[in-house]
Design a protein around this nucleic acid. Structure first.
Length: 327
DNA sequence: CTAGGGTTAG
């Protein structure tokens, strides 16, 4: 296209940049950005917004995104949402909140998409008071409570410690999605309310919503945190046999965590050995910590040595080993 | 003619 008669125009770039974002390819994105600059489309707010988003989606691109953002001739709510959302995605939630404050100071009106990202930042930070403020801000500003925004509110309350409030919003919500159910189940799980999480899970199935792989992670986590080992095992079978979901490492990880918390270290080891996929470092660390807690020091030592062989650069593994020797 | 978000074990 570049060497023919047809030149790219400013309407071409958002599609190309979006493709780079989808691939997460920073080098490709950089070269497309270079082309944007070369053709002088870097004064177009839509092209710049897509560029910010592209950098935010590429690993290691967040600083470049901020650079483009800072140099934009004009910022609209999409620009701010893209940058705030980018910070949340890479886990820089404090920067996301700071940027939201800056957005308010310069007087750009946030919309429901901005607020979803701000709420994600609150959830990540466990900032309940800020989250409550955001909720009242949404009401005060008359920002549209889409299903996605309601879900973000439920998720925030659920994970920041006000499960009752999350449940209340959930019960009053019209048009719940599996995300709404999963957020409340996760909150109950995190706060040791495993039986309620289980009954909500059953209620969900009863209303005709089929559980997906993410919902099962929440459910297993609930069983794990509440010591419901037999329930967890039976749900694991049902996930595979009844709902035909292929377990991922996260599902196996939950089961290992559940067995370890219950002190069934040997059974956790057997479970790992029977898994059809390789245990990742997270699973191995769960097992090692359990070995230490339950006096299986020899076993813990051998697994830790295996872990160190797999990731010799991870300093925390040596801490695990020294903790075992300390015992 | 284009654009930003949304549940995932420890």
């Amino acid at each position: 296209m570049l060497d023919g008669a047809v030149l790219p125009n400013k309407f071409t770039y958002p599609f190309v940049l979006k493709a780079c974002a989808g691939l997460g390819d920073l080098n490709l994105g950089k070269s497309v950005h270079g082309s944007v600059v070369k053709f002088g489309f870097d004064d177009d707010v839509h092209v710049c917004n897509t560029t910010v988003h592209m950098y935010c989606c590429c690993s290691g691109g967040i600083e470049s995104a901020r650079k483009v953002f800072d140099e934009m001739p004009k910022l609209d709510s999409v620009s701010w949402s893209a940058m705030i959302g980018g910070y949340v995605r890479v886990g820089w939630s404090t920067d996301a909140v700071d940027l939201f404050r800056e957005m308010q100071m310069v007087g750009v009106r946030p919309d429901e998409i901005t607020m979803v990202s701000v709420l994600s930042a609150c959830t990540d930070l466990g900032a309940l008071e800020l989250g409550k403020w955001v909720e009242s801000y949404i009401d005060k500003e008359g920002i549209q409570k889409t299903v996605e925004l309601s879900n973000a509110l439920i998720d925030m309350f659920s994970k920041c410690g006000d499960v009752e409030k999350a449940l209340k919003l959930f019960r009053n919500m019209s048009g719940r999605t599996i995300v709404s159910w999963t957020s409340v189940i996760d909150g109950l799980a995190m706060h040791g309310r495993g039986m309620e999480a289980m009954s909500l899970f059953e209620e969900m199935i009863g209303t005709g919503v089929a559980p997906d792989d993410v919902a099962f992670i929440g459910l297993f986590s609930a069983c794990s945190h509440s010591g419901l080992v037999e329930k967890g095992k039976s749900y694991f079978s049902s996930m595979v046999e009844k709902f035909h979901i292929v377990p991922k490492i996260e599902h196996y990880g939950c089961m290992v965590d559940m067995l370890c918390r219950a002190g069934l270290v040997k059974e956790a080891l057997e479970f790992i050995q029977k898994m059809p996929i390789e245990p990742n470092p997270i699973v191995l660390r769960t097992l090692i910590s359990a070995c230490r807690a339950h006096g299986e020091l020899k076993l813990g030592e051998s697994i830790t040595k295996q872990l160190i062989r797999n990731e010799p650069m991870q300093e925390s593994n040596y801490v695990l080993l020294s903790n075992i020797y300390a015992k």
